[in-house]
């Protein structure tokens, strides 16, 4: 199983990288760009017995280590692999 995890800043937390890219895109003429958020994307290969178990364990990994929940939120999906 593969966990595909996105970690992004919570709303209201300053994201200087996102702001810079936002301005750069506007400078390139992409005036429709309203906001840019830059986060992290992680792929974790798992050897889990079931999707339910993987769901619980990945959530725990995110809360304990992968995201700092003071400023970041996370979401993930589980994809079956061969």
């Amino acid at each position: 199983m593969l966990a595909q995890i996105h970690v992004t800043f919570k709303e209201g937390v300053l994201d200087p990288q996102g702001k810079t890219v936002h301005h750069a895109l506007n400078d390139l003429g992409y005036d429709e760009v309203l906001d840019v958020n830059i986060g992290k994307y992680l792929e974790i290969k798992l050897d889990s017995a079931s999707e339910e178990e993987a769901e619980i364990r990945v959530r725990e990994m995110c809360e304990r280590l992968l995201a700092n929940t003071v400023i970041e939120s996370f979401r993930f999906s589980l994809v079956p692999t061969e």
């Binding site: 300053l14 200087p16 700092n68 003071v70 400023i71």
Partner: peptide
């Protein structure tokens, strides 16, 4: 801060 002994966190400098 990461260990929870102190409150809050530190993010990238505003100036990057």
């Amino acid at each position: 801060l990461e260990s929870g002994l102190l409150p809050g966190t530190l993010i990238q400098n505003q100036s990057r």
